[in-house]
């Protein structure tokens, strides 16, 4: 195999996740079961080799917890908004496809931003341009350029939040400069 081996440390988050899924599916977190799960996780990760996810090398839990709560609050608010749109405006709803250039070029962050923004009702990633790391987002109830600007700002804020959680140091310092300027 010519591919570069991933170090165990890099693979660890994946292995831990697999063990948790194993324990959850068996509904049994006894040491013996977890050990067996870990064994299977290692075998699976060796046999079914995936391209390694390039992590930023840092993960800020203090930023992640508030981010998760804000995300949940946004999901709740937007769910009711889409529900009311469906009931009140229905067939007359006006949408738009908005291009949002992102700061980061890392696949992980672009994917994570796309996921978060897709999970919040009312916005949907239609197309991704990886070379320029631009997301094309279909937003529901976008009726004016101001609404589009608001959506764009929200996506950029989401990305900023994700960079603060798990972006690389370079991305973080670039973000700090941008905010400071």
């Amino acid at each position: 195999m010519s591919r570069k081996r991933v170090s165990l440390r890099q693979e660890l988050p994946l292995l831990v996740w697999l063990v948790i899924v194993w324990g959850a599916l068996w509904q049994n977190f006894s040491p013996g079961n977890l050990l067996f799960g870990a064994l299977i996780a290692v075998v699976v990760a060796r046999l079914f080799y995936l391209p390694p996810v390039e992590l930023g090398g840092r993960f800020n839990v203090l930023r992640a917890v508030p981010f998760a709560f804000i995300f949940l609050a946004k999901v709740v608010a937007a769910s009711f908004q889409v529900l009311s749109l469906a009931v009140v405006r229905g067939p007359l709803v006006i949408s738009a496809v908005v291009a949002v250039p992102l700061r980061s070029h890392s696949d992980l962050l672009v994917t994570a931003t796309g996921h978060v923004i897709s999970l919040i009702p009312g916005s949907l990633v239609v197309e991704v341009d990886r070379s320029t790391s631009t997301l094309y987002i279909h937003g529901v109830n976008i009726r004016s350029p101001e609404d589009a600007a608001k959506l764009r700002q929200e996506v950029r804020d989401t990305e900023a939040g994700l960079i603060r959680i798990m972006g690389t140091k370079d991305e973080l310092s670039a973000l700090k400069q941008e905010v400071g300027a």
Binding site: V75, V76, A78, S79, V82, L83, L85, A86, V87, G90, P91, L92, V93, S95, L119, I120, P121, G122, L124, V126, H138, V140
Partner: peptide, 23 residues
């Protein structure tokens, strides 16, 4: 309701997938 009332595929996708996250 969204599936029935929204006009095109894209806006229907919003209704079909998103409320389930919270639901």
């Amino acid at each position: 309701i969204g599936l029935l009332r929204f006009p095109d595929l894209m806006s229907r996708m919003h209704a079909a997938t998103k409320p389930q996250v919270l639901g």
